[in-house]
Write a protein that binds this DNA or RNA. Structure first.
Lengths: 238, 238
DNA sequence: AAGTGGTCTAGACCACAAA
DNA sequence: TTGTGGTCTAGACCACTTC
């Protein structure tokens, strides 16, 4: 990616992260940046808008672009967060156990409805347990529309399914809808997880869409409530 | 707001919502729209980017802009959702009980830390219970930095604090950080809510920032787990 | 009045998809 | 090859903040 505005964005992000541009100070004005980077103002504005969208600056008309104190925001800008990223953040060695990997020829009504399938579409079902600090904390149930995923192995499931879909199959994930609810643990939860007397399960239902707006993955991520944490960053648009 | 790109955005949103432009079809190309609206392509692109960011279309290079089936997404695009909007969606008459409204001269260490206050800043504390279907379901604890809010009444708290801040005080809220965790109920939760034997509380911690990136409100929204539902819409950027 | 960011224009060239 | 969206330019005018 050699886009000019991307390069400018990355440069400024590095300067903010390193402290070269301190928090609560103003960025150079758009006209100054235009000269600095020898480009047009609209290109500078694209870079600055990216910075604003990602929580690095706050633009104020008539004043300038204020650098936000990123130490206040020790979290990734909310997005499509996979388990591996989460575990990395927690600095504990996570372990993934693949409990099931199967190709379902006749998906049941619930899955059909969730994946909006019709007729004889097949579905990959993957059940994984996530272990953190020696305890089984998360139960992940993934359903992938088979028409997009010809094959998948246990090894891939033990690592990152996302990486496989994006890098190897070159599927372009464009957006996802997340729903968070709290449920009673099922028998499955009790058998797969170390519940230790907890009476609730936090369920994250994730609907993942491809570039052409077709739904291809449904995931239920079932967390022990004490280890669950979700962070969201909402920016007012307009 | 008479911005051209806003008008175009609104026009197309209406056309999509009314079904005039059906789901999964393509929008007219940017060049066609440019002619239609007698404007420049960049202005059209601004409107289309707004549509994409708000989940109405999906842009694909070389193809066009696909209209997303909004019936799949029966939710507000995630953002700064206040309680009233939530209750409206649920179509049950909500009732708000104001349990406490006080100006704290010496906020304790926890609040000081959450609101990043120093010295002798004062803080409004507001505690409200939300009743839905005759049951006390949500306990909202709001802390407002008093330097931004000179006065506030019980009546305002019974309605929408947001509306008061935005419309009357003209405070411009620009972004918010949300954190969701599950906790054990406190004695306060037990006394204010109809817990009915539930063993967990879903806590939404909300940090609200003004246009100049200063933190001015901290809110804890404590929900009975069975009635809690959070929806998020994550769009892959770039 | 001067400087800031917000909107808008009319062009240009490029990368990608479909026919 | 044609048409699509993605990037980029060099200007213009406007709304707002600060002095």
């Amino acid at each position: 990616m050699t886009n000019k505005y991307q390069i400018i964005f990355n440069t400024i992000v590095d300067q903010i992260k390193s402290g070269e541009i301190p928090p609560n100070s103003l960025l150079p004005s758009e006209n100054e940046l235009k000269e600095q980077y020898d480009t047009s103002r609209e290109t500078i504005r694209k870079a600055l808008n990216l910075l604003a969208q990602n929580g690095y600056i706050q633009k104020v008309r008539g004043k300038g672009s204020i650098v936000i104190d990123i130490n206040k925001f020790d979290f990734p800008v909310s997005g499509l967060v996979s388990f591996k990223e989460l575990a990395d953040k927690m600095e504990k060695k996570p372990r993934t156990i693949v409990n099931e990997l199967s190709l379902i020829f006749k998906p049941d009504a619930y899955i059909k409805q969730q994946l909006q399938l019709s007729g004889k579409d097949q579905v990959w079902k993957i059940v994984r347990t996530r272990e953190i600090g020696g305890k089984k904390i998360i139960l992940d149930k993934d359903y992938l529309a088979a028409k997009y995923v010809p094959s998948i192995t246990e090894e891939i499931c033990a690592n990152s399914i996302y990486a496989y879909l994006e890098n190897d199959l070159n599927l372009k994930i464009s957006f996802a809808k997340k729903e968070i609810v709290v449920e009673e643990p099922t028998a499955e939860d009790r058998s797969f997880l170390d519940l230790e007397g907890f009476h609730n399960i936090v369920v994250i239902k994730n609907y993942v869409y491809l570039e052409d707006a077709s739904l291809f993955q449904y995931t239920e991520s079932r967390h022990r409530p004490d280890k669950f944490r979700f962070v969201d960053f909402a920016r007012r648009t307009q």
